[in-house]
Design a protein around this nucleic acid. Sequence first.
RNA 1: GGUUCCGUGGUGUAGUGGUUAUCACGUCUGCCUGUCACGCAGAAGAUCGCCGGUCCGAACCCGGUCGGAACCGCCA
Length: 436
Amino acid sequence: MKSNCIKDLKKYFDKDVIVQGFVDSIRDLQYVQFVILRDGNDKVQMTIEKEGNEKLVEIVSNLTLESTIKVTGKLLESPKVKLNGMELIPTIIEVTSTSLSELPIDIKKMDNALRETRLDYRFLDLRNEKNNLFFKCQTTVLNAMRNYWYENGFIEINTPKICAQAAESGAEVFKLDYFGQKACLSQSPQFYKQMCMASGFSKVFEIGPAFRAENSHTSYHATEIEMVDAEISWIDSVDDVMAMQEAWTKNYMNKLKEVHGEEIKKLFNLEVSDVSNSFPKIELASAKQIIKEKYNYVSDKVDDLDRKEEELICKYAKEKYKSDFVFITKWPFSSRPFYHMKDSEGYSMSYDLLFKGLEITTGAQREHRVDILEKQIIEKGIDPKELQFYIDFFKCGCPPHGGFGFGLSRVMMQIFEIDNIREATLIYRGPTRLNP
RNA sequence: GGUUCCGUGGUGUAGUGGUUAUCACGUCUGCCUGUCACGCAGAAGAUCGCCGGUCCGAACCCGGUCGGAACCGCCA
């Protein structure tokens, strides 16, 4: 007989079952012992009457919390048991692994240990039910993202992470020795997804790692991130990119709410954002004007939003348009990379998507006309020779195209209103965190 | 990279020059007729990050060092 998942046990009342799990808690009373078993996020109570069960009592008396056991026994329906109204009466208990009697961190109450201590013992921290649910939800989100793209004719690509040069010059890269040649870790699949446009793939996406050697000490930066990138051809303007991202975003947000909304409400005391309204689009200059008039705040930054402005404009969008998402459009070319297309007024045809007060995406129409592209490279002070391989992509015909990229953990942390990306990443990498 | 702050039992903390180094959770032992945040009693557990200095005396003051965090900047 195979082991059963605890969540499927209801089908087996009055039958013999085998269940495996972690020892979640033990309550040892005078005449009876209760052991709560946990697999994944689901729990079941095992009950042992002491009289006549000396062997089992002996095993349970020596159990430590978080050890793993395999239990064979009969499942009874017991309304008096608060945990799912059932209990398991064991005949055999096999200890399959033994845990330390004293755990390094308290996994039941996350607040009982500092974040850094919990990250040191991430394998234990992840046993916490909130963390378990979080990564189930991330799986649902990733699945919904992919499904939307599969259903809309996108090709999934996997681009190299070892590259000869940086994808966006100026940003810090991790350098490495590549058989005597200089190489670096990819910061973004930007150039290669554009290459796929020149290759006639029309619509592509990639979900994969990106590496940033920036010594950023904030709650929303990491040195290794999971990037979600998409690029589409035959567009008329950057609006087509925004429309695609909006429809795609609504799809995964709705799916998350549909599948896990109730559990999220219960464990995180949180409502998944409603996305039934259109995402508002506000031009950068208007955003600054609104922030000044409504919140009496003026930033030192002229061609970008600072952190406070991001929060304020999101607050405004929430109040006025009932949306947690807001597009900021019409950016000065000075604050954007060379590969963004300029409009007739010289603005970059790009946008940022903000979500609950934080930037989660930059998207744009790309400059696919090789002569203009070369001019923009020079305008940004880059030697075109360094980007020759990239410029060549556009010499043999290339569709008008655009796309976006975003950091998975940053979006997940915003959905769940987790205040630090370290907790929204399975195994975090940052300037001072290389282990585990 | 800039600014600010923090290192005390397993965990989280109290502690502004002399304390038996506080409290909670956890751990261990005993008790407790079914618990479900079980309860009750007791016990063990800390070279106060490290090195040096001041002082009769340092967890506490000073210097250095190591480790870490928050915010800002850079971005996703």
